[in-house]
Every structure is written in C-alpha cells, then in structure tokens.
C-alpha cells in the first residue's frame, strides 16, 4: 500500500470514530504532532506545581492547605499520565524530560507568570484550570487512544481544581475589602494570560486545520476561548469583580466579544522571556539534580536484590 492509501485508510478510521492505538499505522506528522502536544502538556503539569506549591506553607487554614497539597499532587500525577501517553508513540520519558530541562521543549505560557498573593491560588484554580479543562474536555475526544484516556482521567480530577478555586474567589469577592482587593488584583494579572494560554487566533494557528481533520483537536483555539469567556465572564461579573478588558461585551445574540489580546507578550513569554521562565526551569533542574541520589539508591537496591538489569 502506498503512503496515500494508508493515510486514506487512517482518515477513514478516524471518520468512523475509531481510536488509533499503539501499534496502529499513523502518518509520521500525526505522530510528531502528538508527541509535541502531549509532551508540552506533560511539562505544563510538571511546571504547574511551582506557582501553587510555593503557597502551601502559607495556606490560611488546614482545609485550604490540604486542598492545595492534593491539587499539587494531582499535577504531578497528571504529568505522569501524559508522559505515559507520549511514550506509546516511541519516545521515552527521560528524553522528553531532558528536552524540557534544556529549554528545547515548550510548556504552557501561563506558568511563567508569578503567583504574588494567596488569592492567586484561587484565581489560578478558577481561570487557569478552567481554561485548561475546556481544552482537556475537547482533547478527551481525541482520536489517539492513550491521549484521550489520559485526558478523561485528568478531567475527572481537574474539576475539583476548578471548583475549589472558584469557591475561594467567590468567597473572597464577597469578603472584606482586603480580600476583595486581593482577588481583584489576581484577576487583573491572570485574566489576559488565561485567554492567551488557549493559543493563537485560528488565523495564526497553522497546525489547527490538520489537527482537526485528524481528530486530535475537535475545536479550534478561538472556539475554546469563546466557550471559556461565555462560561466565566458572567460569573466574574456576578461576583462583583471587574474584568480588566474595557472592550469586553455581549452582543444582542449573546456572543461575547473581547478586546485585542497582546500577542507580542504571549510570544515573548513562549520564547522564554516571561517573568519567571528562568526561575521555573531552574527549580525543576535543581529538583532533578537533587533527586539523583534517590534514583541511584533505588537502582543499587534493585541490583542487589534482583541482579543487574533484571527488568530492563
């Protein structure tokens, strides 16, 4: 069979809503795009532990502390689900992780913004996890079996992240003047980056048409962003907070329109020049280096008990 025939059969399978599974034939470009997307997603989960993890010692109550610890643990787990999915495409966790530490792989731009106050934890849960869930719910329909399963598992847990954040923000928005100022400040800083994290406009997103055709994505960036605004904006307004976009409005058909997004800022952060890029990667590198003795000890113990390379 020629490449074209194989591709045609592959596309027919996707048209029949079949899942592509490890071992099945796939176009090289499908494999490459999936490795790129899944590994970026995995790195984002791993880096995503940092802005929130830093607030664990400062949680205002035991309940909030337990919630935040559980959330950060979940992000670690989500990274692992995703590295697993990527590995089924013929790469290893180790090489993907190395590309991440070396700065060769990207991760979500949102995690290069600082978390400056406790209210950021709530705002990140509501907006950042909220935007992520929109994307992930869409990706749970993905044509590649391992990615879709990882997404279904992640969505089930991520809903808790979203709700605890929203609960916290609504509470503070209805709280003391100081609490309201804190969440308003967090909203001012996180609103635009949350819209940006859903990716460039469709007109600029060169990968999207192919990814939609192959059932990797089932919606475009702008469609997901629109859903996110439609769901989030009315709630934020009802909470008494002010969304930092004077152009944001709903037309007579109920469609939300937002002001221009600063894509120069987005690309600058993606390219590594955001407020926290160096700090975030530095912390991951430290954690990796400081964990070397643990990996060495595990290897030594296993070798003693089972012999060299017993499970390689």
């Amino acid at each position: 069979m020629t490449e074209e025939q194989k591709t045609a059969e592959f596309e027919e399978r996707i048209g029949r809503d079949e899942k592509i599974e490890p071992g099945d034939w796939m176009p090289e470009k499908y494999r490459k795009q999936l490795i790129r997307m899944i590994s970026q997603h995995a790195h984002s989960e791993v880096i995503g532990m940092l802005p929130e993890g830093k607030w664990i010692p400062h949680a205002p109550s035991l309940r909030r502390k337990m919630i935040l610890i559980a959330k950060v643990q979940d992000e670690a787990g989500h990274g692992q689900y995703l590295y697993h999915a990527a590995e089924t495409l013929g790469v290893t966790r180790e090489e993907l992780y190395q590309a991440f530490l070396d700065g060769r792989a990207k991760y979500s731009s949102i995690f290069n913004y600082p978390s400056l106050s406790w209210a950021d934890v709530g705002m990140i849960g509501w907006l950042v996890d909220g935007a992520a869930i929109k994307n992930q719910t869409m990706l749970a329909q993905c044509s590649y079996g391992p990615y879709s399963r990882a997404m279904v598992r992640i969505c089930a847990e991520e809903t808790f992240h979203h709700k605890q954040g929203k609960e916290m923000v609504l509470k503070y928005a209805a709280g003391t003047a100081k609490q309201r100022d804190m969440v308003q400040d967090a909203l001012n800083r996180y609103w635009w980056p949350s819209l940006m994290m859903l990716g460039p406009h469709d007109s600029e997103s060169t990968n999207t048409p192919q990814l939609v055709k192959w059932g990797v994505k089932t919606k475009t960036n702008d469609e997901v962003r629109q859903e996110f605004i439609a769901e989030t904006a009315p709630e934020l307004i009802a909470s008494g907070l002010t969304i930092p976009d004077p152009d944001l409005h709903q037309d007579e058909d109920g469609v939300w329109h937002h002001g221009p997004i600063d894509w120069d800022e987005f690309w600058n952060v993606v390219k590594g020049n955001g407020p926290c890029n160096a700090e975030r990667l530095g912390m991951r590198q430290d954690a990796h280096d400081n964990g070397q003795w643990v990996r060495d000890a595990l290897e030594a113990y296993s070798e003693k008990k089972y012999g060299a390379a017993a499970f390689a």
Partner: peptide
Amino acid sequence: TYKQQSQYGFVSKL
C-alpha cells in the same frame, strides 16, 4: 473528601 469535586456542589454566584 476535599479532593472530590462532588463535595463542592454547585459553586456559582449566578
């Protein structure tokens, strides 16, 4: 139970 999204019920101002 704080990890269960169902524990939060319906969180909304609307």
